[in-house]
Design a binder for these strands. Structure first.
Length: 391
DNA sequence: TGGCATACTCGAAGGCAACC
DNA sequence: GGTTGCCTTCGAGTATGCCA
């Protein structure tokens, strides 16, 4: 049993023998380069996101804005920890992008000792369940979500670790998976950019489709949304009513609707826009059958013979920024129904042209969704893999 | 250095009153 | 009764201040 626990479930075949227990403090060197703050100089601080989401850069500020805070130069190729949220895996590795930036004393940095530890391996380890539980152990605080990492406890953390060579093999394998994820995310982003560009060309009529005889379609004409669709407001129901009726599967705020579309077998003929009155003014488009909440509008085509629903969906998405401008009121602005109804859009007169456009754009959407599906699958697979590659 | 309180922003949700 | 406008509350995320 003891022996089994000293090797991971999944292992590269070229490595034999048990992993050894090591102290984190013996695998790394704590580094610290205090900044001599000059009042008029500009400094850029970094922050670390929880849940292994990496480092972010803040706006530059003058030295006088730092007050009495002790700050340190960030060095590259180090494991850096936000000690307040280490227990939430606010752990990252510094790169050349962080050189010249600073961090407060709550962000200690550790450089791996050659042949003893591998930076990527250490980072990946602290992102596993085992790594997280160790970070929690070393963070005993009880101030809500602020649980400061005890730095002595952190350095004294003991865990099983393989040879430097095996660490390198494991981390490079995980890095390969990460590269694949990165490539997929880039592909998705490129597809989204491509769609944006194509939409611009299509809706400005710079790019036109031909009809089934190879001839040009007729000109597009401006129509008010209210002439093409029925704009209806969702019912304003409280929690109790929602539970009681079971009739309105969607709750206030369009943003939540997507979570319900599959569950309640959505119908394609309705598009919902969140009015945004109490929800920060966001506009979302979902194809749903039901809606509720005083802050949602549903838009249903009133003549399916003339208007292609998928086309309208794409057209509204393309005009999202303009629709956002309809918001009025201070604080949390609303879109008024009268403004939505009189919002003008330019439509192709031929439904065949609308359908061709919708089919083309929906195909890109499908590719984007495919990419997202692959990303999700790999991320799930990776999570499971991480637990098996480490002890 | 560490523990804890507090600050601040953002996103989201619940709900109510006045108005049409 | 539906629509509109706005207030309040909550929670996540991240950081800072203060004191022992």
């Amino acid at each position: 049993m003891e022996k089994q626990n000293k090797i991971p479930v999944l292992r590269f075949p070229e490595f034999k023998g048990e992993w050894e227990i090591q102290k984190f403090g013996n695998l790394t060197n704590r580094i610290s380069y205090p900044v001599k703050v000059e009042q008029g100089e500009l400094y850029q601080q970094i922050g670390i996101r929880s849940h292994g989401k990496g480092i972010f850069h803040k706006e530059s500020i003058e030295g006088k804005g730092l007050g009495n805070k002790r700050v340190f130069w960030v060095k590259e190729k180090a494991l850096i920890v936000n000690i307040v949220f280490a227990w939430e895996q606010a752990v990252a590795k510094t790169t050349s992008k962080e050189v010249g930036k600073i961090a407060s004393h709550r962000f200690p940095m550790y450089q791996p000792i050659e042949n003893k530890s591998n930076l990527d391996y250490l980072l990946y380890f602290f992102l596993t369940k085992k790594g997280k539980s160790l970070l929690e152990l070393a963070s005993p605080g009880g101030a809500g979500r602020n649980k400061t990492l005890g730095q002595k406890e952190f350095e004294n953390l003991k865990f099983l670790i393989p040879s430097g060579l095996e660490q390198g093999k494991i981390s490079s394998f995980i890095s390969t998976v990460n590269e694949k994820l990165k490539a997929l995310k880039e592909k998705k982003s490129l597809l989204e950019q491509y769609k944006k560009g194509v939409m611009q060309q299509i809706f400005s009529q710079e790019l036109r489709f031909k009809d089934h005889n190879g001839k040009n379609f007729s000109d597009w004409k401006e129509k008010k949304l209210g002439k093409v669709c029925d704009v209806k407001k969702g019912k304003q129901l409280n929690k109790e009513q929602l539970t009681k009726t079971g009739e309105y599967p969607c709750i206030n705020g369009g943003i939540n609707l997507s979570g319900y579309t599959d569950k309640f077998n959505s119908l394609e003929n309705t598009i919902t826009i969140s009015e945004g009155g109490n929800s920060c003014g966001y506009i979302n488009f979902f194809k749903v059958k039901f809606w509720s909440g005083g802050h949602n509008y549903s838009i249903e085509i009133n003549n399916p013979e003339e208007t292609d629903n998928d086309f309208l969906f794409q057209l509204l998405k393309h005009n999202e920024a303009e629709i956002m401008k309809l918001r009025v009121g201070s604080g949390l602005p609303n879109i008024q129904k009268k403004d939505l109804v009189s919002f003008s859009l330019v439509f192709p007169m031929s439904k065949e042209e609308q359908t061709k456009i919708a089919t083309f754009l929906t195909a890109i959407d499908d590719k984007v969704n495919q990419c997202q599906g692959q990303i999700t699958n790999i991320e799930v697979w990776k999570r499971g893999l991480l637990q098996q590659l480490f002890v």
